[in-house]
Amino acid sequence: MPRNDKQNEGIRKQRIAQIMEAALDVFAHKGYHTATIADIAKKANIAKGLIYNYFESKEDLLYKLVMHGMNDLIEKFDANHDGVLTDEEMELFINDMFQKIVEKRNYWKLYFSVMLQPDVFDFNFYNKFEEQYQAMVKALIDYFKRKGFENPEMEYLLLHTMSDGIVINFIMNENFPLEGIKNEIIKRYIHNNSQKNKKPC
């Protein structure tokens, strides 16, 4: 009996996840530049040609792997998707992000081991990444403006940099005080007194 469209889509998603999981492991342990599509196919236990049904190249696979990781981490950002971040949405986003860091510690360990390899996250890759998340960046900057921060753009960069550092510290040390760090971030961005972030007149 032939499969219907829903079944085919389910198989497609399962296959993509299988390839991405294998690619992450291979990139982490062999190095992105050394790894080949054949290595990934062997790890995934599938034919090499099948990978090209879903990904154009090794570079395309890496890019989609990075996007998949980021999209999972920011899934709860701006929950109603109206482009305006409320305090409740910001707190939901922060709590969900920290929960996923804990639940997927091994995943992020592999993820960052790939991202920190030389010449993987180059200038062109960074530009594609920034374009993908322009709406998110704008929503965060607008949120910081409404909260009264003197330099909202710099505040976004600070949050972005802190997030990377928090994940890296946690994957190196599972006793890293995530809960305390999370509470400090919530205090800074949600329960802050906006006047504290402005220079006195």
Rank of each mutant, 00 (worst) to 15 (best):
A35P: 00
L50V: 13
F98R: 12
I94Q: 09
M97T: 10
F55I: 04
L24D: 06
N71R: 06
D25P: 07
K48Y: 09
M115G: 10
F121D: 04
K43Q: 13
E56V: 13
Y32I: 10
D87W: 06
E59R: 10
Y54T: 07
D82T: 05
L65R: 00
E103F: 05
L61I: 01
H81G: 07
E89H: 01
T34M: 13
V102K: 15
N45W: 04
G83Y: 01
A35L: 00
K100A: 06
K104R: 15
Y107S: 06
K100N: 13
K76D: 13
L85F: 03
E75S: 11
H33N: 06
Q117Y: 13
F125W: 01
G31F: 10
T86N: 11
V114R: 07
F27T: 02
E56N: 09
G49N: 06
N80C: 03
A47N: 15
V66W: 02
R105D: 04
H68T: 03
A44D: 05
Y52Q: 06
D72Y: 09
E89A: 03
M90V: 12
K104V: 04
H33T: 01
G49L: 04
Y111T: 04
G83N: 01
G49T: 01
T34L: 14
D122W: 11
K109G: 13
G83V: 00
T86S: 15
M67I: 08
L85V: 02
